[in-house]
Amino acid sequence: MASQGTKRSYEQMETDGERQNATEIRASVGKMIDGIGRFYIQMCTELKLSDYEGRLIQNSLTIERMVLSAFDERRNKYLEEHPSAGKDPKKTGGPIYKRVDRKWMRELVLYDKEEIRRIWRQANNGDDATAGLTHMMIWHSNLNDTTYQRTRALVRTGMDPRMCSLMQGSTLPRRSGAAGAAVKGVGTMVMELIRMIKRGINDRNFWRGENGRKTRSAYERMCNILKGKFQTAAQRAMMDQVRESRNPGNAEIEDLIFLARSALILRGSVAHKSCLPACVYGPAVASGYDFEKEGYSLVGIDPFKLLQNSQVYSLIRPNENPAHKSQLVWMACNSAAFEDLRVLSFIRGTKVSPRGKLSTRGVQIASNENMDAMESSTLELRSRYWAIRTRSGGNTNQQRASAGQISVQPAFSVQRNLPFDKPTIMAAFTGNTEGRTSDMRAEIIRMMEGAKPEEMSFQGRGVFELSDERAANPIVPSFDMSNEGSYFFGDNAEEYDN
C-alpha cells in the first residue's frame, strides 16, 4: 500500500510504541512475548500442572481467558453494579484439565481477579502490559475465525453469508486497541457500523446529549479505520460520505453494504499476525530463551520457528480426527482463516481442507461434555516452508469459486491468482447506482469489472525454506488448481455463540 510509510507498523501498534527502528520493534515485541511466557509459567505453578498438562491447549485457553477477564475493567465495573446470582464479580476462573488415573478430569478453578492481575503485572515488570493482553485477544479471535462461520451475524446486519472472507476479527472485544483495529476485516468494521446506525434509528437519543457526542466521535473513528483499509480513492470518498452524514440511517447502511461487497474484489488491507497460545510461549521462556534479547516478529519467520520446536497437546472428542484438529489450530496460529487453501497447503506441506470436510468441533470443551471418553493427542503445528504475512489485500483475480465463501483475504505475501467468483459478486451490483453516491458507485463498479483474471497478485513473492531466515531465496510455489480455494466452501461450520 502506498501510504505504508505514514502508518505505524503493526509491531508498533502491538507494543504501543512511538516510531521505533526494526531492532527496537523486535525487542519490544519480544518483551511482550516474554511477559506472556513468564505469566503462563507462574500460572502453571499456581495450578500445580504437570509439564504435559501445561502444554494442553484447553488449559492455555482457560488461563488466557482468566487474565483477560481480570483486566476487563468495563465488564468488571458492570458486574459490580449489576450483581447477578451466583456470579462473584471479583473472581474469575474456568475449567482446568488434569490427568488422573490414566483419565482426563475437569476441575473448575476460581481465583481472585486481583490475584491474577498481581501475577500478570509481576510477570511483566510491574506494568499492565496491555500489548500482551491484546495479543491474547487476537489469538482467540484468530481461533474463532478458523472455527466458526459468522453466517447468522452477517444475515442479521443485512449482509450476504458468502462475504465471510471479510469477517476477520469479528469476535475481537471493543477494547483491543490499535492492534485489534489493524486485524479487523472490512466486513467486521461494516458490521460494527451498521449495528451502531441501527441503534440510532431505533433509539432517538442515541446521537443526542453528552453521551451522543461520545457516540458520534466513536462512529467517526470507526469510519476512519474502515476508510484506511480501502485502497481505492472511490471507496475512500464513499467512506467520507458515510462519516460526514448528519443523521446516519438506511442510506448509510446501503452504502456500507455496497462497500463491503466491493471489497470482495477491490480488497481492503487487513493486517495478519501470528499470535500463538500462551502454552507455546511459556515452555520456550522456561527453556531459557530470551525473546527480548533475541527479538521477535509476528509477521516473519519467528512464529514458524517457534511452532517448529513446540509440543502442544489437545483434548480430542471420541469421533474427532486429531489431524483435522491440528489443521484448525495451525490455521489459527498463522492467522489464515480466509487465505486461499492452495497457498496454505503449499506452505504447510500437507493438504489443507475446507472447514466442512474437517471432523472436528471447536477447541474448547463445553462444561456439560462427558470427560470419560476424552483422549488427548499432539497437535501437528509444523510447516514445510515459511512466508511473510501481508497486510495488503493483493490485486484481484477471477477463479472458480464456491457456493460458500466467494473470495479470499490473503494472509501471506505469496504470488498467486486470487480466487473470487466474479459473476456471483457482480450480480449483486445491478441497477442500484442512484442517489448521492452514484458517481462513486459507478466508478467502483467500473474498477471491479476491469479486474483481470490473468493478473498475478504479489508478483514474484515466494515462500522460503525454514533454514532461509533472511528470506534470501524465494520459492514461487505451484498450486494444484483442481483443489478448492475457499475454506468455508459450501460450508456447515458451527455458528459462533458468545
Rank of each mutant, 00 (worst) to 15 (best):
T62V: 06
A181E: 08
R26M: 12
S170M: 05
S50G: 15
A451T: 01
L266V: 15
E455K: 08
K87N: 06
M440W: 13
E24K: 10
T396M: 03
V363G: 01
S377V: 14
L110M: 05
K87Q: 08
Q235L: 13
E375P: 02
E494S: 00
S310N: 04
Q168L: 06
K77L: 12
E449Q: 09
M426Q: 13
R342K: 13
P283F: 13
F338W: 12
G37C: 09
A129W: 00
V352H: 01
P277D: 11
A337I: 02
A428C: 15
L193Q: 14
I41N: 13
Q327A: 03
R117K: 09
P419D: 00
G435L: 04
I25K: 10
S310D: 00
L264V: 06
A373N: 14
N21F: 00
A284P: 13
G268Q: 06
G35V: 06
C223Q: 12
N202H: 14
D128P: 09
M159H: 03
S377I: 11
M481T: 10
N492S: 13
G17N: 14
S407Q: 12
Y496A: 10
P419M: 12
D491F: 02
I138Q: 04
S438G: 15
F346H: 05
E434W: 06
N59S: 04
C164Y: 01
P283V: 12
I116K: 04
E81C: 13
M456D: 00
A337M: 09
G180P: 03
T424W: 08
K198M: 11
M456P: 00
M239Y: 05
Q58C: 05
L143Y: 05
K77P: 00
S3F: 14
S274W: 09
G93C: 01
L49C: 08
S402K: 15
R400N: 04
R461P: 05
S297Q: 03
T378G: 06
Y487C: 08
P474R: 15
L47W: 06
A237I: 00
F429W: 04
L276P: 12
M13G: 07
I41H: 01
V67F: 09
T437V: 02
S486D: 01
T433R: 14
M196V: 11
G249P: 07
L259C: 06
Y313P: 07
Q58P: 09
V363K: 03
A27L: 09
A260Q: 03
R74E: 07
Q415G: 10
T433D: 07
W386R: 09
E64S: 09
L110V: 12
T23G: 13
D340A: 03
T146P: 01
Y496T: 00
A85W: 00
L193G: 13
K422G: 14
I36H: 02
S486Q: 01
P89K: 02
D340P: 01
S335Q: 11
I365Q: 05
A271K: 12
Q459H: 12
M426G: 00
R199T: 11
Y281E: 13
D372K: 11
N144E: 04
N224Y: 10
W386E: 06
N492E: 01
G435I: 06
A181H: 14
G200K: 05
D128I: 03
P410E: 00
E254V: 10
R389H: 00
L56H: 12
R355A: 07
A401M: 00
